[in-house]
Design a protein around this nucleic acid. Structure first.
Lengths: 349, 349
DNA sequence: GGAGACTAGGCGAACGTTCGCTTTGCGCGC
DNA sequence: GCGCGCAAAGCGAACGTTCGCCTAGTCTCC
């Protein structure tokens, strides 16, 4: 039980005292400002390093009026996509010398009550929002407006907030178009949570691809998987109960696509021989499902980096630019999709 | 391009001026210290809320000598297990009113050069380390020692640092013992990265279970999967090339277990009829592989929460207690394991 | 009616910086 | 020989808090 008091930090005054100069001169040297003779400069630097001087950012930001720190509010750090985004954002911040302080907000509503104040108390220079399920939270939007530079991963009501994301409609379009171009005509889709914008966008892309191929959009081919394996599995079973002639399924993300694969296996349908499957997001595991999943790559890491770049540029110029950035997505063809002509009908056991 | 200067924050002096008292009195009211009459107290509180006063934690921590902030250094936020850990830690910190500032360190060596100074500059009250691959980094250990309260998820050389983790040897033991108790005698294991302590511990558990069952430990049944699906798949194939009589495989984590399942499928061996598979970690997906994976549950979330609890208790008492906490793990039986008697030998195609 | 205790509030200092303004000392041109 | 300009360093103030100590006023009690 080694209890020991924490050693006091060495301050610029300590360094000054040891070097025989005023602490302001020391400060000048450490910041490379003002004119100081080479010999004293060297002496001060030497002493500073001997004493292990580490500047106190708290004090510094008090006078500078900026903290070199940004807040990152996320709904769930363990969400795979979100965590890629976070890594991208954090690395970009680090590259630019900014610190990142995080808070997660509880899914059941307003963890915002804690998150925002915590960030404000710490006087963050800007905020990065990554809480997709808050996209309709007007309270949040209200608080954010007119105060700080904010960049969000998702839509924020009111529209004063800059957004960086990927083109979800294109995602849905590319996935579906890949299937129609391979001759599929009866294409089911297992969607994300109904109310969410991503879902609506991906659904729009799905419809557009079908229409372009001259295929009617039929509602019994659409079912909700709500981003979860188990629900996607169930949704797939429901679709096939309604329509036995489905030859392809587009899942609104890869995790659900894995559920779709499970469902098909369970029904005794082979992939891609009996049914093609395409997901989106391109998670690591997508390359290792059986068969490997055809999917649309969504650049989460780059989105995070880009969002942070935009945020920091706003912070540095002290301006607010409510622009929307969309990053490109692209199709990755693997083994889970095949020509419709190869598809042989096999009755459900 | 709506450029607008950032509004200055309202300070305790602003509130004081408006309420007609000194700013120190305002401070007293806001902190509930000293004696202030009910009427002025009410007036001050009213003004504070009218003006939207938010205390400046920077200034506060300057005089209080603590920042109510802890640093979290992690190797990779997008690692599934690590991110569960982080969520647990963050939530516990939040519950206790502490902020969390993060840095990731690059796998290729010493991102520490940036991470530590960044934390020190911000005068964090303590540091939580979650960078398993740094477990042998003496430089890191040296810097950490004797300065701040530090709790680590992994071993730190020199041993002055508190550690919270789960019982990896027990994990390996439970997984393997489950297999031996079901009559398996030829049990392969696909390990994590060789040099790592987790790997060594899980391997020790594996050996102990075998010995208890009176089975010789044979080196041609051990192969390295290095935590990755693809490598685990390859390792499995190699094992079966050496030994065709394997009836069960223990993978050092669930991700690799998925690779093992792929390999078996590829070889035409059915799970669990021809071969049983058990993983560990209990990731979300484990319940949805086909067949659902028998695994050992490792409480990452709780580990994070517990680590943060320990860290904060050290911070609050200003003491350093280099204790080691081990959290319990338990077996979860799903569909990927069966009695050895059911196992029928099928030659590799 | 006066001493003592208590209440309400003010004041100065400190925390560790940055920044702009002064002061000191010295070489130099006329 | 005198003022000028410039380099080197010091000084005071400010950032927004907390904290300990001081003071003025009121209440209580004998």
């Amino acid at each position: 039980m080694g209890v020991r008091r924490q050693a006091r930090h060495v301050s610029v005054k300590d360094v000054a005292a040891r070097s025989g100069v005023s602490f302001q001169t020391t400060s000048k040297v450490l910041n490379g400002k003002g004119s100081v003779s080479d010999v004293t400069r060297a002496r001060i630097l030497q002493v500073a390093s001997d004493l292990g001087y580490v500047p106190n950012l708290q004090a510094r930001s008090l006078v500078m009026q900026r903290t070199l720190t940004v807040g990152l509010i996320a709904s769930d750090f363990s969400d795979h996509n979100l965590s890629r985004f976070i890594v991208g954002a954090e690395q970009e911040a680090r590259r630019q010398g900014y610190g990142v302080i995080i808070t997660s907000i509880e899914p059941e509503g307003s963890g915002t009550e804690y998150a925002l104040p915590a960030m404000m108390e710490r006087r963050v220079d800007g905020i990065l929002l990554a809480a997709p399920q808050m996209e309709d939270d007007r309270a949040l939007a209200h608080v954010l407006d007119r105060t700080l530079p904010v960049v969000s991963l998702h839509h924020v009501p009111g529209g004063g907030v800059a957004t960086v994301g990927s083109d979800h409609e294109l995602t849905g379009y590319l996935a579906t178009q890949h299937l129609t171009s391979r001759g599929h005509r009866v294409i089911a889709t297992v969607t994300g949570t109904r109310g969410r914008r991503v879902t609506q966008s991906r659904l729009r892309g799905y419809r557009r691809a079908l229409e372009e191929a001259g295929i009617d959009v039929e509602s019994d081919l659409v079912d909700e998987g709500a981003w979860e394996i188990a629900q996607a599995l169930a949704a797939t079973l429901r679709c096939f109960e309604r329509r036995r002639d489905i030859t392809a399924v587009f899942a609104h993300n890869d995790v659900m696509a894995i559920g779709v694969l499970s469902a098909l296996r369970q029904m005794g349908r082979r992939v891609p021989d009996d049914c093609s499957v395409v997901g989106c997001d391109d998670i690591d595991m997508a390359a290792y499902t059986s068969p490997p999943l055809t999917t649309v790559h969504v650049p989460f890491y780059e989105t995070g980096a880009e969002a942070m770049r935009l945020l920091l540029s706003m912070v540095k110029t002290n301006s607010v630019v409510p622009k929307k950035v969309l990053l490109p997505v692209h199709l990755i063809v693997r083994g889970s999709t095949a020509e419709a002509s190869r598809t042989r009908f096999r009755p459900t056991p």
